[in-house]
Design a protein around this nucleic acid. Structure first.
Lengths: 197, 197
DNA sequence: CATAAAATTTGACCGTGGTCAATTTAATAG
DNA sequence: CTATTAAATTGACCACGGTCAAATTTTATG
């Protein structure tokens, strides 16, 4: 036992197997959506045994966490590129891709909510990490736009995130359309970011 | 076919069976908690066949929706009795029973979130109904206490609800304690109800 | 009562997520 | 090259939610 190789005991083909599983899952999801994903289909497509799946992912949701987290990362990065929005309307327009993805399937929203509350944990998951990043981004937006100045940017960011979730949650009730979501979110964010007293 | 009995085609022992199922479930939950509840145990305790369960409840969550909805109704009613809280601290103290129940088990929170977004649907579920009632209550509190006046009470109520959910969601991350929840909620509600500009 | 029609209940059966002891494969030492 | 050890993989198996055609019980009718 020398000084080398202490951090990573051993791994090899396992990385390739994991990639095969993720790739198979992504393919199946693109074909049939998140809700129709079956573990047996994933391992069948990947060409491995069922037990292997659970050697790589704690459960099915852990796989979804990785995949959804990765997609959120792309979306978040794209949202962060342009300069900060200078009005509520601009902000909501900027949030459109995130809203579209989050409302695309009920399952996506459920998994996101379940894994969202993990900020600041040692082993932070990919979804929680994205929530963290988003809150920071929203905080930056709040501080770089013509909005209230009496609260810490991060607090304002957390509020934006909370209102976004609330607006989306109400969307999944049958008769609330996308139109309603934006109207509702506008009311929330106006009261949150532009109080009149 | 005369003029009588058009609304209720037929029912009889079914009501008793439903009561047996609900009673059995409540007993089991009080003994082992929500998460350990098994449909087979419920029907075993109630003395009916498995299929009967699903003739009465669409799925397991539908049963939980009824039970959790009923408990929320009790809690909400108790919260509504005293006069409106006159400070953020009083408000959070008043919310204590609701917070305690909601954070008691992860499963409870998950079911509540899943069924919360149904306000204003024709066939409104018991949990969504309670959310609705709570938002109205919070709106009343906001209007009857020394808080901002530049937004509609119901909007303020929705915000309180959104922040409460956000604070609770963060609780389920390992290292956020009850203490942290109240601290966080205080910050949220202060910024929401008492903006300084 | 007898009989038909509808509501309710039944339990064998299935789909799918998840477990685990046994097997195979890769890494390391002599 | 062989032996030893640990990681990775396997697939039979289990747990549990949910389905459905058939059997049973209730209600309605003459």
């Amino acid at each position: 036992m020398q000084t080398v190789a202490m951090t990573k005991p051993i791994q090899k083909r396992a990385i390739a197997t994991r990639e095969k599983l993720l790739s198979a899952a992504n393919t199946l999801i693109s074909e049939q959506g998140f809700d129709a994903l079956r573990v047996e289909e994933v391992v069948g497509t990947a060409g491995v045994a069922k037990g292997t799946f659970f050697a790589h992912f704690k459960d099915k949701d852990a796989l979804l966490e990785q995949i959804i987290g990765a997609r959120l990362a792309d979306i978040t990065e794209a949202m962060a590129q342009p300069p900060a929005p200078q009005s509520i309307a601009e902000m909501i327009a900027r949030l459109a891709p995130l809203i579209a993805f989050t409302t695309s399937e009920r399952r996506v929203f459920d998994v996101m909510i379940r894994y969202s509350g993990a900020a600041a944990v040692a082993e932070i998951g990919p979804i929680a990490e994205q929530f963290d990043t988003q809150i920071l981004l929203y905080g930056r937006w709040a501080s770089e736009g013509p909005f209230r100045r009496d609260a810490a940017p991060e607090l304002l960011g957390e509020g934006i995130s909370a209102f976004l979730i609330q607006a989306i949650a109400l969307t999944f009730c049958a008769l609330n359309s996308q139109e309603a979501l934006e109207t509702r979110l506008t009311a929330y964010l106006t009261a949150w970011l532009l109080p009149q007293e």
